[in-house]
């Protein structure tokens, strides 16, 4: 499995893990620190993320939750002043090892962003883009349809796949972006506040979708909406100011009976 991250081995076998136990660790951060220049954005974070569950990362603005998410698929590499210390293991392989190609890594870890960002192309081409650059050419129509179905968008767009992705509503655009992210069949989907730019109806659709996606994919979602985290996640990690992971545990426990006083204060709305 580790070879999948190295430059040439871009194929990864999804069938082998269909039998794995629910809750097996897929991602593991150990003593992970991230710096932007001299500023520390993540402070010695250690946590594990289970496979095929929804892990929510919550915390106030500037707590480093987005930084943590972006360190999982090495999107932070695009910022030249960014520096990473510690380890982040994906199926046991440290993704910051020198033989890991971030481009190959991102093919196994899809991402959905805060604002819907479809390409100014047709709906079909938006979904097909990731497949094409990953060299997957066969059964394209079927793969595009599958991705759109899984993203709960197929019924709304099936008649007009040549329409521009930008002509869709905000909520549809975000589901299109989810379809684009899952089309190449990644193992993990990272979501950076995916519903924060959407209206309540579209938000509810995205939330339903996330729960469905977790049957097949590992979902890591950053949100500053605590109700959202409580509704959709299995596991919740609370980051507080200074890039510090304060508490992580089953969502019911974090929201019902947190161990840490600061977490309790944050969740009950005393600050943040």
């Amino acid at each position: 499995m580790n070879e999948a991250l190295v430059t040439d081995g871009i194929t990864h076998d999804v069938t082998t893990d269909s039998a794995s136990i629910n809750g097996e660790t897929i991602l593991e951060a150990e003593d992970l620190s991230v710096f932007y220049g001299e500023t520390r954005a993540l402070n010695h974070v250690s946590m594990t993320i289970p496979e095929r569950q929804v892990t929510a990362i919550i915390g106030p603005s500037g707590c480093g939750k987005s930084t943590f998410l972006r360190s999982i698929n090495r999107m932070n590499d695009l910022i030249s002043s960014c520096r990473v210390e510690g380890e982040l293991r994906f199926r046991g392989k440290n993704i910051y090892d020198t033989d890991v190609d971030p481009v190959a890594l991102r093919r196994a870890i899809g991402m959905v962003f805060q604002r819907p960002n479809p390409f100014p192309k047709s709906i079909y081409d938006n979904v097909a883009y990731g497949l094409k650059i990953q060299g997957i050419e066969d059964n394209m129509d079927h793969r595009v349809e599958q991705a759109l179905r899984r993203a709960a968008l197929w019924d709304e767009v099936a008649d007009d796949l040549s329409k521009s992705g930008l002509d869709l509503s905000g909520g549809q655009q975000q589901r299109l972006c989810i379809a684009r992210a899952i089309a190449p069949d990644p193992e993990v989907i990272l979501m950076d506040e995916p519903a924060s730019a959407l209206d309540p109806v579209a938000t509810a659709q995205i939330e339903d979708l996330i729960e469905e996606l977790a049957e097949q994919y590992t979902v890591v979602i950053v949100t500053h909406n605590m109700q959202q985290a409580a509704r959709i996640s299995d596991l919740t990690a609370v980051f507080l100011t200074g890039g510090e992971l304060v508490e992580v545990g089953p969502t019911a426990q974090i929201f019902g009976n947190p161990e840490n006083q600061r977490v309790e204060d944050y969740i009950t709305g005393k600050f943040g």
Partner: peptide, 27 residues
Amino acid sequence: VPDSRRQAAYGVGATQWEVIRDVVLPA
């Protein structure tokens, strides 16, 4: 060219050249 669009392409595993060819230059 909005940075969000570059990120979208990087996010699905495009190389820098592919991002420039498919996203930056057309826009």
